[in-house]
Design a protein around this nucleic acid. Sequence first.
RNA 1: GGAAGCGUGGCAGAGUGGUUGAAUGCACCGGUCUUGAAAACCGGCAACGUCGUAAGGCGUUCGUGAGUUCGAAUCUCACCGCUUCCGCCA
Length: 466
Amino acid sequence: MPQIGGFANCSGLKSSGLKNFRLSSAHAALLVIYWLLSMLDIQLLRSQPEQVTARLAARGYQFDAAQFAALEEDRKQLQTRTQDLQAKRNSLSKQVGVLKGKGEDASSVLAEVAGLGDELKANEAALTDLLARINAFVSIIPNLPHESVPVGASDVDNVEVRRWGTPRVLDFEEKDHVDLGAALGGLDFETACKISGARFAIMKGAMARLHRALAQFMLDVHTGEHGYTEVYTPYLVNAESMYGTGQLPKFEEDLFAVPKADGGKFYLIPTAEVPVTNMVRDEIVPLDKLPLKWVCHTPCFRSEAGSYGRDTRGMIRQHQFDKVELVQMVEPSQSWEAHEQLTRHAEVILERLELPYRRMALCTGDMGFSSAKTFDLEVWLPAQKTYREISSCSNFEAFQARRMQARLRNAQGKNELLHTLNGSGLAVGRTLVAVLENGQQADGSVVIPQALRPYMGGLEVLVPAL
RNA sequence: GGAAGCGUGGCAGAGUGGUUGAAUGCACCGGUCUUGAAAACCGGCAACGUCGUAAGGCGUUCGUGAGUUCGAAUCUCACCGCUUCCGCCA
């Protein structure tokens, strides 16, 4: 089993100064700038602003190159000046030590260094402030799309890459999973609404078991056949982790937060991507441990702010849903091959479950913030007579790794950022929906896919209660 | 919850105000020797940032942050984490 040196040591280390990302002190800001500067390579922003601007424009982000250049100009000047002053102070202080060591008078040197104090302090403060502004500017820039990503503005410009399976032609009026679930007596949204609110579900009996069976099945395939190591992680994480994978600082409103007694807060994970990917934060992974391949089954919590009115019926869009997540950390040269493999790993689940799907290459305008390229897998839902997203498989290249300072030691003994990838393999709730709707029969019963039957005690059909 | 202690480089472990970015050992890399390997010996070996075409210079970092000081791994305060003992609970 892969092990990463030292990550058991969870003592907070460099990160606790970043709490809530409020740059409350000079040093915190310096740390942010030194450790986490940008999700994009800052050198690239400096050396090729035109290309960066063009590529970001393709995904609908307006990069203000002129403002960045101005900030950089100021930064360069201030930083040089500050470091000169620091160097002077250091060397004079050393002289004091030498003189005192020899028992000589150091008062003239002391007077000289005292004169530096105010200017140095002012410069340091100004630099801290400027670096914080640059960081704020740069940390909300999304990743650059890979050159193979189709250019487009929204989901209508996504490109279908392949298609598997043929939707059944039903000779009866199809039901959606809500009606099927109600008739089967296993899906209950009303009671869930009473005890929690909208966008929650209760599953009972064989339905609950089917849900569990799906997760078990997925885990078994990924661990047994695809070479992933199962991992169990916290569901509550700190702000640094959310920052590392890119949910913060930009998307706080999508998250649920839990206050802590000390005034800080935990965030509920919106996906296992967050805890799993952050396992390598501030780590340097030896080459021979790569690739790291993790599979993780967790609940996911999303506020769904801004999606009022969308998918309000049924289990498609919930505040809480289960997902089996695939995560890989690989050498940079391997990440595109890994992206294809990881996507296949998710597709295999759909095929084993006999669910028709298609693979979509997301266009530049529809991709997530951190992604360099994303394939969505969409499963056929008979009741909606359309394909709906059930998995999203992304290569982030070094984007997340840069923020997390997740590195590998290469063959030359040098540290370099590794590449991170992840994908749903699959979203369990939506898979349940797909199994119900695709397996339905005229009498409202649902045929359980062969692959799941061992997990259902041999049960072949879900039958409506009379 | 009460008491005590600890947090230094990949690891172990020195270091209590002044060329200490940090002794020493292990690990690792290169070399000598050897038919080959081991051993022995010699040499090298932190990260990040920044300036520079480069060579290299400079800055920051000893759990995190704030302070004292001309100067902090070393002193003060707060916080985080870990260990041990007692209590409590399973």
